[in-house]
Design a protein around this nucleic acid. Structure first.
Lengths: 348, 348
DNA sequence: TTGTAAGCGTTATCAC
DNA sequence: GTGATAACGCTTACAA
């Protein structure tokens, strides 16, 4: 870290450093002539003021943070894309931390943001922090951060901050209902982490849809996939062996869907002939592969963009009321939901 | 940005701020008693020293940058994952910029890194900077950065820096040869951006394999897919209409493969019966879908990890000779490369 | 219109 | 062992 400083520029331009500063930020008055000269010297050395020095002096920062739980899940890659595009256009620098869905890493990530004195944070928490003690710890970390935070995808109770979420209940309801409409009477769910709102809401939406249609929610049909590919894969292998399995599943997350599909493809069963389903979020590349996998669709890049925009709005007006953007997933039926005559039905 | 400062901690602990600093960095001597007291106060407020102030004072930074050309391409998501894991364990904070494969954005990103005074940079350039003028501009930006840079995936001529690359020539050669071995005599390529080394090398490897096998490289079979999904899709639609098309393709990139598959699936042709191929990199989720798409496999997360490690090695020993890690792609044949009796062959 | 000087939160060099 | 004090590179009154 060598590089020119504002003083070098000032000297070479034959002015004081405050003059250079004024030119950089065009604050205060400078004669056109001086400004020209200063700019010339800055251009000559391609000078850029140090962000650290500047933020120390101004007591603000040009940096925003983002904490993601699964960096290479396509869902979060899209989120990241949306966020980074907005950050770029607004001259905000993005600091990225991954938590790997682990609470301790989450704390660590928050401490990184603290250390970096980020101006704002987009936060997908590793868990819900519903336990009193965890919540307090999180709250204190967030308080110290002392900057706007936008919650993304996963919510945390009692936190009065901006957020971008999905109507998970409604989505699950729609998907399950679509399976019912397709004629299925034995419907299962690959449920997600019940420690997460999104997991519970999706299960609740599923249940509600069954209930409204007078269908039972057979506990054996509730597969605890934990939003995890391998867990789902293992569980589904067993489920698929049985003949009294559901004719269709609502799969509450993309990672689970991967595990589900892996098990199905390995079992030799056909979709939707032997087993039907609707998933949450489009699978990466499924359109290219021409795979007729029905799903709940949402604009994920847009969710990232929206989160960044909420952050910026809050910068501009710290007093504005808190805003929660709720994205509604749309049903996209491509065929995998169909009930094909002759599907294996439970003995019962 | 409020938060406690080192002075607040010092006062509350009843010591001078240099003592607190000593405790933080455990440099110099402090009595166990004082240290205990200071740590207690720090813990009470969950105090973390400001990274900006610290880096201003120490003239170094705890931050590394990464510039990526396509943030939501699964290849780069994996790279990012590898890099961020290493960064996390080494207490380095990651700053992310995307260039969208655009040179101006690349310059902008480099300027961000400059402004942030990053300690090191992992750089996937938007292009090759082979034009004299562009090269000079890039070189000057890199010189000003004045920090170790590790080039990743895409190389730039004449730059004597560390890098992690792939043996693209050899990979393309292997894949093409595999198609020949499978019995194909009319083989095409979805070529990548010829302005990029990786594009040229893959085409060269393809050509070499054909040549060694006494097969012609029919210009009509060289589809300029530009590493782009839509371009490839459009071009392939036309190619697939013709009857004198190749029986197999080597597809030199994952995005192109998506476009290729989209065109194929839409045309109703079957793989490999009507058209065979081998791609570069595994397609996301193909194992789950049970898709038998043959490809050149490489450890992408490992490439990211390796790049970060090279950076760190360079921090530790700035004088060490430059290192270029060349990753060798492995052939993974799953069936899509096969020549099926009855495949459409050109009239010639 | 410009320069001087203080201050931002650290670390590092010294005396004590 | 410890506490002043001077940097670090910048912004921002304030004075000239």
């Amino acid at each position: 870290m060598a590089g020119k400083t504002i003083l070098d520029i000032a000297r070479e331009a034959g002015v004081g450093k405050s003059t250079v500063s004024r030119v950089i930020n065009d604050s205060g008055y400078t004669s056109p002539e001086t400004a020209r000269k200063v700019k010339e010297v800055m251009a000559k050395y391609n000078y850029t003021p140090s962000s650290a020095a500047r933020s120390l002096s101004t007591q603000t920062s040009d940096t925003i943070g983002i904490i993601l739980p699964e960096s290479n899940n396509p869902f979060f890659s899209d989120i990241l894309l949306g966020v980074s595009r907005v950050a770029d256009t607004c001259d905000l620098t993005l600091i990225l931390c991954g938590s790997d869905n682990n609470v301790e890493n989450d704390y660590r990530a928050l401490r990184v943001m603290l250390r970096q004195r980020v101006r704002g944070l987009i936060y997908v928490p590793a868990e819900e922090y519903s336990a009193e003690q965890d919540y307090e710890k999180l709250k204190s970390l967030l308080d110290q951060l002392n900057c706007p935070v936008v919650l993304l995808d996963r919510s945390i109770e009692n936190l009065r901050i901006d957020g971008v979420f999905t109507d998970n209940f409604r989505g699950a309801f729609l998907a399950t209902e679509a399976l019912v409409r397709a004629g299925h009477r034995h419907i299962g769910i690959i449920a997600g982490d019940q420690g997460l709102h999104i997991g519970r809401e999706r299960l609740a939406g599923f249940r509600k849809a069954l209930e409204e249609n007078g269908l039972p929610a057979d506990p054996r049909y509730i597969v605890p996939g934990q939003f995890d590919r391998n867990i789902t894969y293992t569980l589904m292998q067993r489920v698929l062996e049985k003949t009294d399995r559901p004719t269709a599943f609502f799969i509450s997350n993309n990672l689970s869907e991967t595990g589900f599909l892996q098990a199905v493809s390995q079992s030799g069963l056909r979709i939707p002939d032997d087993i039907a389903f609707i998933g949450f979020d489009e699978m990466y590349g499924q359109d290219a592969y021409g795979l007729p996998y029905s799903c709940l669709e949402r604009d994920v890049v847009g969710m990232g963009r929206k989160a960044a925009q909420l952050l910026i709005k809050r910068f501009e007006d710290p007093k504005r009321p808190f805003e929660r953007e709720i994205v509604m997933p749309r049903l996209k039926l491509l065929g995998s939901e169909k009930l094909v005559r002759g599907a294996v039905t439970p003995a019962g």
